[in-house]
Simulated scan of single mutants.
Amino acid sequence: MEQKKVTKFDLVESVYLETNCEKKTVQTVLESVLENIKSSLKDGATIELRGFGTFEPRLRKGRSRARNPKTGEELSVAPHYVAAFRSGQELKNALWELPVPAKKS
């Protein structure tokens, strides 16, 4: 399966065509939703979107002997939070319907 990339612009265009709202309004709403998700995660909250999935801040352990893959330099990484996503059941079921490409031999 060929990897496709959907950008914010593509999402705005798609919602615009489906709803007939002004593009500027759709863009403002999308930006607001994303900003609210980001600020909620920064506050330590979990965002649950039923049927889609859950975003949550997850603590990653620090490491004293990490390596910069670009330079090979050894460095230390402090414990920090990352954004994690768990897909909901409806999304999982939708992805099960994707065709699986045959293996090349």
Rank of each mutant, 00 (worst) to 15 (best):
K5F: 00
K5P: 02
K5G: 00
V6I: 15
T7F: 01
T7E: 01
K8L: 03
F9K: 10
F9Q: 09
F9H: 04
D10S: 01
D10I: 01
D10T: 00
L11A: 02
S14R: 12
S14Y: 03
V15M: 01
V15H: 00
V15L: 07
Y16A: 13
L17I: 00
L17H: 08
E18S: 09
T19I: 04
T19G: 02
N20H: 08
N20S: 14
N20Q: 12
E22A: 10
E22C: 00
K23I: 00
K24I: 09
K24Y: 05
K24G: 05
T25K: 13
V26N: 07
V26Y: 05
V26Q: 09
V26F: 04
V26T: 05
V29R: 08
V29G: 08
L34A: 09
L34D: 04
L34P: 08
E35H: 04
E35P: 00
E35I: 00
N36R: 14
N36W: 07
N36K: 11
I37S: 10
K38Q: 12
K38I: 03
S39T: 15
S39N: 13
S39A: 01
S39D: 09
S39W: 02
S40D: 14
S40L: 11
L41S: 07
K42C: 07
D43R: 13
D43V: 03
D43S: 13
G44D: 06
G44A: 08
A45S: 13
A45F: 13
A45Q: 15
A45N: 15
A45C: 14
A45E: 14
I47V: 15
I47R: 05
E48I: 04
E48R: 10
L49W: 02
R50I: 01
R50A: 03
R50P: 05
G51Q: 06
G51T: 05
F52T: 02
F52R: 02
F52V: 02
G53L: 10
T54A: 06
T54S: 13
F55I: 03
F55M: 04
F55A: 09
E56Q: 15
E56P: 04
P57G: 07
L59D: 00
R60W: 05
R60L: 14
R60I: 12
K61P: 01
K61M: 08
K61A: 14
K61V: 08
R63S: 14
R63F: 05
R65A: 10
R65K: 15
A66M: 11
A66L: 03
R67A: 09
N68F: 08
N68L: 13
N68M: 12
P69C: 12
P69D: 04
T71V: 05
T71E: 03
T71N: 08
G72K: 11
E73G: 01
E73S: 11
E73I: 13
E73H: 07
E73M: 10
E74R: 12
E74C: 04
E74V: 14
L75H: 15
L75R: 15
L75A: 09
S76A: 14
V77T: 07
A78M: 07
A78S: 12
P79K: 04
P79Y: 04
P79M: 04
H80I: 05
V82S: 11
V82L: 10
A83P: 10
A84N: 13
A84M: 09
F85M: 05
R86V: 13
R86P: 06
S87G: 10
G88R: 04
Q89I: 06
Q89H: 05
E90M: 10
E90C: 03
K92D: 13
K92N: 15
K92Q: 12
K92A: 12
